[in-house]
């Protein structure tokens, strides 16, 4: 069973979003990290880069595979998690905590309302 925290919003591409005011913190879900296997490299954009909804902003690579990651939310990157350069395994160990990837200043602060709730994401996963 995947860990799906109640307080987050989810995308069908298996990203999570935590909204705090106009800033959204973005990472990948427990399901996503488990599917990938041991993560060895995370390629992230720079602070100041802007992305539209559902645009690829980087990639997560495991030993076996590479997976693009998408911004569920449009906006400007205010901060990236540089620590993942040195400890990409955080993505496996703590996908909702230490392995947050981006903070984005949302272009539309209500955009996350359209994302899946924890319950909806769980149902989505069970139909996969």
């Amino acid at each position: 069973m995947s860990n799906i925290p109640e307080n987050l919003r989810y995308s069908k591409d298996h990203e999570w979003v935590l909204v705090d005011g106009e800033v959204a913190t973005i990472g990948i879900t427990d399901f996503a990290q488990h599917s990938l296997g041991d993560v060895v490299y995370v390629d992230l954009p720079r602070a100041g880069d802007s992305f539209g909804s559902h645009e690829a902003f980087g990639s997560v690579e495991s030993v076996k595979a590479v997976s693009e990651i998408f911004t569920p939310i449009a906006g400007e990157v205010t901060e990236v998690n540089e620590a993942l350069n040195d400890t990409p395994e955080d993505v496996n160990n703590d996908p909702y905590g230490a392995a947050w990837m981006l903070k984005i200043k949302m272009a539309n602060p209500n955009e996350a309302d359209g994302m899946l709730s924890a319950e909806e994401y769980e149902e989505y996963l069970s139909n996969q």
Partner: peptide, 12 residues
């Protein structure tokens, strides 16, 4: 099996 629960790095 492409890997088991320990994961590819641990198995390697």
């Amino acid at each position: 099996p492409v890997q088991y629960t320990a994961g590819v790095i641990a198995e390697h």
